[in-house]
Design a protein around this nucleic acid. Structure first.
Length: 247
DNA sequence: AGGAGGGCTTCTA
DNA sequence: GTAGAAGCCCTCC
C-alpha cells in the first residue's frame, strides 16, 4: 500500500481528468421545458450549442458534434426563460461549428422581434445574399439552436407559414404563444395583402411590425407589393425594413 | 477534386 | 390554382 497523498492524487487524475479540462472537451446536456414540450439542450464552455426535440438526442449530437456528452444537474443561467420568451438576454450561443453563410443567416434571424414574422427573402437580403432564398431555408433547417435563434419567425412570402425543424405544427404553436395573430395574417394573405401602410405617417410596414399594429382601421391601406405602396407615396418603415427584400 | 442532387422558397406561365 | 424552373449553399458520392 502507498499512502503518499501526492501519489494518490496523481492516481486519481489518471482515472478522472480535472473538471476544467473535461468541460473544454465534452458538452453538458439537460432536459428542460419549453412552449412545445420538453427539449434536450447541450452546451459547451462557449455557450448553448444544440437544442433537440424528441428521441435520438445523443446520437444526433454525436453525429453532428463528435464530442462526448455528459449530463448536467442544472441548466445554464437564463436558458429556460430564453426558451420561453425567445429572447436570449445575455445567454451565450456556441455557433463555432457552423459555416459563415449559416452564421450570417442565423444572425439575420436574431433580428426578428418576438411576436413578429419576416419572409425568407428578407432574411436572405439581411444576410447579404439576396438571391440565396432557397439556401436560407436549408440553413434554417440545420439551425442547431431552434427557439433560441427564432427561425419559427421566418415565414413564406405568400403568407404560408412554411416548414420548420420541429414540424409546421410546432411553428404554429410557437407563433401563437408569442401572440402572433395568425388568423388575421391568413385573412390578409387571402386578399393578397403583404404590406400595411398608414396614411397618417406615410409609412409602409410588414403586417406584424409593431408600428403596423397601431394603425387605426380608417387610416390603414393594404398592398400586395412594396412597389405598389411606394407608387402610392409610402416609404418603407425603418423598423421592419420591408425594403430589404425587394427593390 | 468536382459535379449532382436536395432543401423550412419564390417567381412565372 | 398548381407545375416547373430558377437559384444558392451544402453534403455526399
Amino acid at each position: 500500500m502507498n499512502d503518499d497523498p501526492l501519489l494518490a492524487r496523481l492516481a486519481g487524475l489518471a482515472v478522472e481528468p480535472p473538471d476544467g479540462l473535461l468541460d473544454r472537451i465534452a458538452a453538458r446536456w439537460i432536459a428542460v421545458p419549453s412552449p412545445i414540450g420538453e427539449l434536450s439542450v447541450a452546451w459547451t464552455a462557449r455557450g448553448v450549442a444544440y437544442v433537440h426535440q424528441g428521441d435520438g438526442f445523443s446520437g444526433a449530437f454525436r453525429a453532428r458534434f463528435g464530442r462526448p456528452l455528459m449530463p448536467a444537474t442544472r441548466p445554464p443561467a437564463g436558458l429556460v426563460p430564453a426558451l420561453r420568451t425567445g429572447r436570449l438576454s445575455g445567454l451565450a450561443l456556441d455557433l463555432e461549428e457552423l459555416g459563415e453563410f449559416q452564421r450570417d443567416v442565423l444572425r439575420a434571424v436574431q433580428a426578428v422581434p418576438r411576436g413578429e414574422v419576416r419572409p425568407y427573402a428578407w432574411i436572405a437580403a439581411r444576410a447579404g445574399r439576396p438571391g440565396a432564398v432557397r439556401a436560407v431555408g436549408t440553413a434554417l433547417a440545420r439551425n442547431p439552436v431552434p427557439l433560441l435563434v427564432p427561425c419559427h419567425r421566418v415565414t413564406r412570402s405568400d403568407g404560408a407559414l412554411g416548414e420548420y425543424v420541429f414540424g409546421p405544427a410546432a411553428k404554429q404553436r410557437l407563433l401563437l404563444a408569442e401572440g402572433v395573430d395568425l388568423g388575421r395574417l391568413d385573412g390578409l394573405a387571402k386578399e393578397r395583402v403583404f404590406y400595411l401602410a398608414s396614411d397618417t405617417t406615410g409609412v409602409v410596414c410588414f403586417p406584424t411590425c409593431h408600428n403596423a399594429r397601431r394603425i387605426t382601421p380608417a387610416h390603414r391601406h393594404g398592398f400586395r407589393t412594396l412597389g405598389a405602396a411606394r407608387t402610392a407615396g409610402y416609404r418603407p418603415c425603418r423598423t421592419c425594413r420591408p425594403d430589404l427584400q425587394a427593390a
